[in-house]
Simulated assay, not measured.
Amino acid sequence: MPSSKTATLGFGETTVTIGRIGHGLMNMSTRDPSDVLPDETAFAAIKMGIDALPEGAQMHLNTGEFYGNGFSIANLELVARFFAKYPEYAPRSFLSVKGGMLPNSVKADGSPENLRRSVTTIAATLAPGGKKMDLFQMARVPTNVPFDEAFGTVVALKAEGYFTHIGMSECSAATLRKAHAIHPVSVVEIEVSAWSYEEETKKVIAAAQELGIVIAAYSPLGRGLLSGTIKSVDDIPAGDYRRKLTRFQEEAFAHNAEIAEAFGAVAVRKGVTASQLALAWVLNLGPHMVPIPGTSSASRHLENIAAADVELTGEDLAEISKVLEKGVKGSRIMDGVPAEKLRLWA
């Protein structure tokens, strides 16, 4: 049932149809402890998105073993509570989970012991909700064991029935090809937006399209700046990790805010919201692109999903390119932290 509103994920008998706009769930649990999100607010957003999809399509729900304050399992627990309360939404959801980090940290460990611990922890946490994860992916390419060994462990865990699909995250095009040659990779998750479009991003997108792999594009709204929701540094809560990113600091922020304002002006002329324009730009990169914006607002989620209906003309794309010519200032990672440490494009 491929269309502008859906994408095909997987291979052979495991193929499923998902909506072109997914839902990142991290920010529902990774937030200021004084601003705890009520379950029903989170649940309303998840339900609204699933209900908005074409018949037969599943919502790509994206979570992680460490999506919670202190790298806890809080988000997995929220997902379990959702499916326990609304079991009818389980078959209409495609649940993708990242793991493979050491407990309560973001250090990748690809040892058989840790990967099994991660997968079984995820499975046990989700069990009360009755919804198994559909896809597991190592959140980063580990360095403590050879890649073939780590990926082989993931393949073995899949064979044991813990999940049906294997994904990759923050990997290079070369690593993606290597993994796919060992076992089909259904999804690769990378950051993609109008101003997070690096050379390696382009290579991963091209390789994925060639191999029939879906791109789960995270932070497609530039972490709130492209969508117009962040207009000044003061709009970012104290303690928010974005304050540590060079793109959101002092001179860089002022420069980037000017670009975002011009981007928003294009959206106004197009008759869409800035968020919809940003998502449409990502969708335009190929039929395998599935942005996974994160929101806890039901109305904002519906706005995001409607971006699948936005068609960008050559004139629109030229106008956007002109706006982006100034180039974003600052990095998408924290100041002073080398990309190698975060295992980006490994």
Rank of each mutant, 00 (worst) to 15 (best):
M1E: 12
M1G: 15
A7Q: 02
T8W: 08
E13Y: 14
T14Y: 08
V16P: 06
V16Y: 06
H23K: 10
G24H: 02
D35R: 15
V36K: 06
I46A: 08
I46Q: 02
M48S: 13
I50S: 01
M59K: 03
H60C: 14
L76P: 00
L78K: 05
R81H: 15
P91W: 03
R92T: 07
S93Y: 04
G99L: 00
L102M: 13
V106G: 11
K107C: 05
D109T: 06
E113Q: 10
R116N: 09
R116V: 06
R116Y: 05
S118C: 07
V119W: 00
L126D: 00
A127N: 12
P128H: 07
Q137E: 03
Q137V: 05
P142E: 04
N144M: 08
N144F: 08
P146Q: 11
D148W: 09
D148Y: 08
E149Q: 10
L157V: 00
E160A: 10
Y162W: 13
F163K: 01
H165I: 02
E170S: 07
A173F: 04
L176R: 00
L176I: 09
H180G: 03
H180N: 10
I182L: 11
S186N: 02
S196T: 13
K203H: 03
I205H: 00
A207I: 03
G212I: 01
G212E: 01
I215A: 03
A217R: 02
S219F: 12
L221T: 02
G222W: 02
R223I: 15
S227G: 10
I230P: 04
I230Q: 02
D234Q: 14
R243I: 15
F253W: 08
A262I: 13
A262G: 06
K270A: 02
V272C: 07
L283P: 01
N284L: 04
L285H: 09
G286R: 01
I292L: 08
T295N: 12
S299R: 06
R300N: 13
R300C: 10
E303L: 03
N304E: 12
A306F: 04
A308C: 11
A308M: 09
A308F: 04
L312W: 07
A318L: 12
A318S: 11
K326Y: 11
I333P: 00
K341W: 07
R343V: 07
A346Y: 08
